[in-house]
Nucleic acid binder design. Sequence first.
DNA 1: GACCAGGCACATC
DNA 2: GATGTGCATGGT
Length: 212
Amino acid sequence: MTLLALYNKLYKFYGPQAWWPSETPFETIVGAILTQNTSWKNVEKAIANLKKIGGLSSPLKLDKVSEKRLGRIIRPAGYYNIKAKRLKNFLRFLSSSHGGRLSGISGLDTRKLRHELLNINGIGPETADSILLYAFSRPVFVVDAYTKRIFSRHKFFKEDTSYEEVQRVFTANLPRNSRIYNEYHALIVRLAKDFCKKKAPNCAVCPICPTP
DNA sequence: GACCAGGCACATC
DNA sequence: GATGTGCATGGT
């Protein structure tokens, strides 16, 4: 079974996932940082708190909130001190070299933008790629822990394969299409939550596991 | 109470 | 380059 065939199978099973669940690209970026190693349910609470104070109306507005207060507001998302710092790091990057507006970076070449995002302390490969794909619609495949778990179980690579290598496997075997990358990653997350638990995977009824 | 959740930086070998 | 640890809330 090829990666594209598995994608089609998942898409037929679940249908479109409508990712990223947000109203604006800025909200997507904030969500991408907040969801690091954290369940989306908890992030939703933090996002709701931010919206309540108008913090997501623009990066400039959020940057007016002190790091300490920001930490209290995003508390439900966990790791709130370090995440407040990471949000501030992104906002500082935006204001110091790009006018504090997303329009200052939205026109950058994908490779250059990825490089700049990775230079921000607190933004690693998955967060950078999530931002590129879901906030800026760039054709970049997002790899996460679920991707490694599921596709290593299906023998496409070993569980401990590096981020970049896993990404290469997917991009080399799929059309270079941001819409497909968007749906595929979202479908993987959906599948993992439903059937591919770390401890007790339910392969017997999983839509892409070989039926016995 | 243990385990997990849409990672990342940093220390150490 | 690989491996180990801190960061923290909330659900199962």
